[in-house]
Design a protein around this nucleic acid. Structure first.
Lengths: 203, 203
DNA sequence: TTGCGATTCATACGTTCGTATCACATAATA
DNA sequence: TATTATGTGATACGAACGTATGAATCGCAA
C-alpha cells in the first residue's frame, strides 16, 4: 500500500505524538503500531529499530522547528527585537511542532551523550540566538556579557514555560488551552526576555 | 541488620542517584538492589513497590532542597535581592541535592498528572518565589506584572542552566565540573534574573 | 498471465521486567 | 530456652518488551 498515507508516514506521525507525550522508554513498539494500525513488524521493517524510529520522528519535528527559529531570526529590527521575535515564534508554535522542545529537554535531563538529532537541533538553535545576541551587542540594543550565556538565559524562558505549562495547570490553576490566556503568557515571556537582555531600561 | 547503614537507607541513596541520572523507567529494581548490595525482594519489602521507592527517594532530596530555597528566601535585602539569593542557592547546590530539579523537570515533560511529591515541591517553591516577587513589587525593587508569571521567569533560568549544563559540554564546549567556570555561570544567572525582574535599570 | 520485488502479517524467541512466595537467619521478648 | 516479630535470601511467575522469521499478499513490469 502506497496511498496518500502510507504506513511509514503513519508510524512517524504516531511515534512523534507518543514519544513527545510520554518519552522514549514509556512507549512500546506495540503501542505505536496499534495506534498507527500497522503490523508489529512494521517498525523494524521501515526503520530498523525503535531507536531509529525515535530519531527519525524527532527529525521530522526538529526540522520545521529549526526553520521556524531561523526564519524568525531574520525579522527586522535590532538584535534585541529579533531575539524577541524568535521567542514569540518558539512559544506560538507550541500546539504543533512543540514536541521538539519537550523531547530535547527530556534528553538533556538524562545523562549520557545527547542523541545526534537532539545535539544538532540544540547546536543549531543556540548558535542562531548567539548570533542575534552578538548583533545586538554591536547595535547597542543588548547588554555586554558572554553571548553564549546570554543566549541560554533567553532560551531558558520559552523552554521552561513550554514544559512547565502542564504543571502550572495543576499547581497553580493556570489554563493552558485557552488561547487568550496563552497569549498573555507569550507576551509576558517576550517582554521578560527583552528585560533580561536589554542594555538599558527605564521604568 | 540495623547498623548505621541499613538496607533501607542504602536503597534510598542508590535509588536517588540512579533515578536522578537516568529517569524512572530506565532504572530497574535489579539495577538498584545490585548497586545497593541488597536482595531483589528488598525494594518490595521496604517500600512496597518501585513507584513508592521512587517517590520516597524524591522526597529525600526534595525536602532539603525546599528548605534551602525557603531559607535563602529569608536573606536580607529587597525582594529583588532575595530572589537573587534564592537563585544563587539553587544553582550552588547543584552537585548535591541538585537531582530534585532534574527529576521535577522530567516529570513536567511527561503528560499525566504530576506525582504528589513533585507537585508539592513545585507548589512550595513557586509560592515562595511569588511571595518574594510580591514583596519586591511593594518595596519597589521589582517591576509590575503578574507575580506568578514573573516567578516562573525567574525560576526558568536556574532550572534550565542546571539541566542544560550537561548538553552544553557537548554542544558548546562549556566545562561544568570546573568550579570556577561554574561560578561564572552562577554569577551570570543571578545577574540575569535581576535584570529580568528589576523595576529600573541603568546601563 | 506470469514472475518478482516490496510490503504486510502472524507468530515465535529470548530477555528483562516488577512482583510474589516461602524458607531461612537474626534479634528481642517472655 | 522457647517464641515471635523483623528482616534477608533464592527462586519462581506471568507479563511485556524489542526483535527475528518465514509465509502470505500486493503492485506492477515483462
Amino acid at each position: 500500500m502506497n496511498s496518500a498515507d502510507p504506513v511509514r508516514t503513519r508510524l512517524l506521525t504516531v511515534a512523534e505524538e507518543l514519544f513527545t507525550r510520554s518519552g522514549y522508554e514509556a512507549v512500546s513498539i506495540r503501542d505505536i503500531v496499534a495506534k498507527a494500525k500497522a503490523n508489529l513488524g512494521a517498525v523494524t521493517y521501515h526503520f530498523g529499530s525503535k531507536q531509529a524510529l525515535y530519531h527519525a520522528a524527532f527529525e521530522v519535528i526538529s526540522e520545521p522547528f529549526a526553520e521556524l527559529i531561523a526564519s524568525a531570526a531574520k525579522s527586522p529590527g535590532s538584535g534585541l527585537d529579533r531575539v524577541a521575535a524568535v521567542v514569540r515564534a518558539a512559544l506560538t508554535t507550541v500546539p504543533r511542532r512543540g514536541g521538539a522542545v519537550t523531547c530535547l529537554l527530556r534528553e538533556l535531563a538524562n545523562d549520557g551523550p545527547l542523541p545526534p538529532p537532539m545535539l544538532k537541533l540544540m547546536q543549531r538553535n543556540v548558535s542562531v540566538i548567539r548570533g542575534l545576541i552578538e548583533a545586538g551587542q554591536q547595535d547597542g540594543s543588548i547588554r555586554d556579557g558572554d553571548p553564549t550565556l546570554l543566549a541560554l538565559s533567553a532560551i531558558s524562558q520559552p523552554f521552561y514555560f513550554k514544559i512547565a505549562s502542564r504543571g502550572l495547570e495543576q499547581a497553580l490553576g493556570v489554563k493552558r488551552d485557552d488561547p487568550a490566556q496563552w497569549m498573555r503568557v507569550v507576551d509576558h515571556v517576550a517582554h521578560s526576555v527583552r528585560r533580561t537582555l536589554a542594555r538599558e531600561r527605564a521604568s
